[in-house]
Amino acid sequence: MEMLFLLDKTVIAFVAFAITLLIATYSTYAERKVAAFMQDRVGPDRAGPFGILQPLADAGKFFFKEEIIPNTSDKFLFIIGPGISMLTALMTSVVIPWGGTLQIAGRDISLQVADLNIGVLYVFAVVSLGVYGIMIGGWASNNKYSLLGAVRASSQMISYELSMGLALIALIMMTGTLSLKEIVDQQHGMNWNVFYQPFGFLLFIICAFAECNRTPFDLPECEAELVGGYHTEYSSMKLGFYMFAEYINMFISSAFMASLYFGGYNFPFMDSLGLSQNAITIIGVFVFFLKIFFFIFVFMWIRWTIPRFRYDQLMKLGWQWMIPLALLNVFVTGLVILLTGN
């Protein structure tokens, strides 16, 4: 039984890993198609029908490009930087509940790799480690623009982590648990947390944009001021790793938002359809991925709509608006819980 359990978890971990990579790959294609749509262009359409093979062509190009490591760089750290970015980006997917439970041969198989009782904190811990890849890469390049990009990235991520945590505290106060699985199960049917915490969700999504270094908060790689930011000196697949890590982060934070605020794999009328549990679970997985794709689309939509902030505006927003508002949200949530008695 123990062996079977380990086998299940290994299979789920590998599938989650493969899906994460696949979705990150196709996010690059989606990003270019969405950009093209927003700007009234066609977008990539040469490789395969509708350009569907474009990500593969891009990856091939990344692999065969000449690799340049600057002479003055710290070689070991220069090489390990993108690796750390990729590693931390991929580590978060273990606690995300991809679906309910499947019944195969009389056994219940939960579609989640690990149901930690500190799931939300685990995600936070791994996200806070993500900044090391950028900082190490930026410093090891021995280039002033890279260093400035790295410093911007780290101060931005630390600043927005605070308000992200405070936005989540209000949610945790409501759910009373840190386990992602339990949080999702509490939102059964249409009982989604976003209806109780709309303001918290707004704060959370803003912080998620800042944590992923996406526009309007992509100051770390602001090409108008810093050439390319922390990855100025990078070429070939190392640059690919940094860009890929960004797309993985985007996917994971979309999954995180969908499971925390939008009910995860729950969908309306799931009890009144009269389907078996396996069917409900499989539909739930599809629904979960639809929600994730919607959030990925929002990420892209905003990137091609809103120009980026100035750096002092970004810091001002983070410290003088986001944190007080998040604290206010915590206070109001606490007051409501106290008055209504649950």
Binding site: I118, L121, Y122, F124, A125, V127, S128, L129, V131, Y132, M135, W139, L147, A150, V151, S154, S155, I158, E161
Partner: peptide, 21 residues
């Protein structure tokens, strides 16, 4: 989790930050 978030994720980043500059 808290050790990872506070010490590894925040305080050491600030350390690194200062020493890099």
């Amino acid at each position: 989790a808290v050790n990872l978030i506070v010490y590894t994720g925040a305080i050491m980043v600030l350390f690194l930050f200062v020493i890099m500059l």
